[in-house]
């Protein structure tokens, strides 16, 4: 790993400032993808802005009929949260199947979606459940957030703050994992709710996508 300047801001505003001020800054959330990437020397950022000190980014609440999850909430927290388990058990199950137990204890929803690995679970979860990504600048529907392989709608100094999920009537997530890496070869989230039937597939293309003609017809 190459060395870098480490920042641990106490607020999203300070984090955004640090990001803008760095020549090649990179946000560190749970680090479960970024740190291995740095170790392999596949990235060499000048500055690392560590969101671990921003308490406001952590936590899960129910608000206006939606489930609202802070960007720095770990997969283990989502998987074990009573509200998520009661309202969107498919989302809890999805989070419970990401990586391994130790990855789930560190990895976060914000980090996962900002990285947008084509084999990651959360992108299909967000698209399949019709979630909205909130940043320090704006709100982005999941359908418009994931642009391509490791590419999102996030601008240079934009930081994910929370993700809101509408509560579906029913939903399920299933994946077929690569036997070695345990990443999804393919993962599918299906939901039925106020916005109709939604289907999203991860792993089978450069980004999580609804299939062209979802069965049941409603689509997105």
């Amino acid at each position: 790993m190459y060395d870098f300047n480490h920042h641990r801001p106490a607020s999203v505003e300070d984090a955004a400032k640090a990001l803008t001020g760095a020549s090649d800054g990179k946000i560190l959330a749970g680090g479960q993808t970024l740190i291995p990437t740095l170790k392999q020397r596949l990235a060499s950022p000048s500055d690392i802005i560590d969101l671990g000190g921003i308490a406001a980014l952590k936590g899960i609440k129910e608000e206006g009929g939606n489930i609202v999850i802070g960007a720095m909430t770990t997969h283990a927290t989502v998987a074990g949260d009573a509200t998520v388990k009661a309202k969107i058990p498919a989302l809890a199950a999805l989070a419970d199947g990401i990586g391994d137990a130790q990855v789930r204890n560190r990895g976060t929803i914000g980090g996962s979606i900002a990285n947008n690995d084509p084999a990651a679970d959360y992108p299909a979860g967000l698209v399949g459940l019709g979630a909205t990504v909130h940043t320090n600048k704006r709100d982005i529907p999941a359908d418009d957030f994931f642009l391509g392989m490791f590419e999102t709608a996030l601008e240079e100094d934009e930081i994910v703050t929370v993700v809101t999920f509408p509560v579906p009537e029913k939903a399920a997530y299933a994946k077929f994992a690569n036997p070695a890496s345990r990443y999804a070869i393919v993962g599918v989230m299906v939901s039925s709710g106020p916005a109709g039937v939604r289907v999203a597939v991860t792993g089978a293309g450069p980004r999580a996508l609804p299939p062209r003609r979802p069965r049941g017809g409603a689509g997105r």
Binding site: H6, R8, L28, G31, Q32, I35, P36, K39, I48, D50, G52, A76, A101, Q102, V103, N105, R106
Partner: peptide, 13 residues
């Protein structure tokens, strides 16, 4: 109190 991979966490974290 929670298990983590210490090879995937910075000391500063």
């Amino acid at each position: 109190g929670e298990s983590v991979k210490s090879c995937t966490m910075l000391a500063v974290q």
